[in-house]
Design a protein around this nucleic acid. Sequence first.
DNA 1: TGCTATTGTCATATTTATGTAACCTAAACG
DNA 2: CGTTTAGGTTACATAAATATGACAATAGCA
Lengths: 231, 231
Amino acid sequence: MSASKRVLIVDDEAPIREMIAVALEMAGYECMEAENAQAAHSLILDQKPDMVLLDWMMPGTSGIEFARRLRKDEVTADVPVIMLTAKVDEDNKIKGLEAGVDDYIIKPFSPRELVARLKAVLRRATPKGVEEPVTVDGLTLDPVSHRVTADGRPVELGPTEFRLLQFFMTHQDRAYSRSQLLDMVWGGNVYVEERTVDVHIRRLRKALGERHDYLVQTVRGTGYRFSAQVA
Amino acid sequence: MSASKRVLIVDDEAPIREMIAVALEMAGYECMEAENAQAAHSLILDQKPDMVLLDWMMPGTSGIEFARRLRKDEVTADVPVIMLTAKVDEDNKIKGLEAGVDDYIIKPFSPRELVARLKAVLRRATPKGVEEPVTVDGLTLDPVSHRVTADGRPVELGPTEFRLLQFFMTHQDRAYSRSQLLDMVWGGNVYVEERTVDVHIRRLRKALGERHDYLVQTVRGTGYRFSAQVA
DNA sequence: TGCTATTGTCATATTTATGTAACCTAAACG
DNA sequence: CGTTTAGGTTACATAAATATGACAATAGCA
């Protein structure tokens, strides 16, 4: 999978931040903390978190005010924000949503609810582009149905081989080193042997069969390449 | 007709909402109300109304803007929208239709006109599978009678399994993640474990029996897919 | 209210996928 | 030619993901 999502927690009370951080980290998110709007702003500019959890009540610039400000600035306009509040006041809720906040959680909340909402907002905020099927010489990969066919016949692939093939088919005629492939297909922060790539290349070729395995080409001393042109 | 259609009325003026609600309820519709785009959005995700009546002019996010946003997100993309407006401006009308609005009513309007248009849009815009039976390889789901049959024999399904199957049959050949399924089948603001999906998949498969359980396919590392093509 | 169907969650099997090491082969090179 | 080196293959232990069965809480309903 891709790198874990990074969440910035903004709350003036350290214990609360900590609690939230723990919950999120258990759910596989990476957390940053800020105890006021100013610190938060720097962190957002600097780190570009995927999501901001913002406490409603804070000394200095209030959460609502801060959210509004984030929305105004083009650079920060599309960072999703979830507001945390102890208020059950409906008016406040409306004001908050008008400030362009993506969701709203009323304290106290369960870690599960937090994570669920966060996930929902992240998913909504990341509209996937229209993914078109790619075809090369009878070999078709359809990202939507998550299927690969060779001349109409289904091809069985493990998840990693699927991603590998998908990467290749969308980056044809270019040689990639093993470590580049690890970065692009496995994701930046995983440690695996480079030779592991070989094994997956092997599995991919095998799955493609004689008819298509020529597409996955070895570039000696460099790595691999996907191309319809024969070497 | 089985269940009455549910209509969400979005307008910032309570009296107007009330008036419309009364008219619609007399015509046998079930009404929900929201006074701004944000509240409306939550309600749509959560309740999945069959239709949205949207006021053009609203403080905060305007109706037109909101309609556009609804269309963007797959989850809400096929909720029919009728725009209510006091403007007779032709340009606005064009803009509205470009936003994917299904119809347009100019205030003031008679309850009769409202109901007539609403009915028309519902009839026209109702996607197959919501009203029309769907059949795949001897497996038939009839939304109207709320029945599922396999080669004529009735299939017993719990409510959730029914909705799941209905969603699948109207969205075939497409891989969905567990959280997408939760969004689409359970509704947006419900917090359940992702693994719960597995259990319902299991129940659905079991109910479909050996003859048809191949239709519900596991996509390893991703989620599930409904397809008549064998994997 | 008592009873039954439905649901969401767990704990526990099963099945798959993955990364590595060991070994094999074929180029490149002197 | 013999060596060296990079890549190909295979087998295997282990990690991950999914399937399954059981159970307690709930929601409906008679």
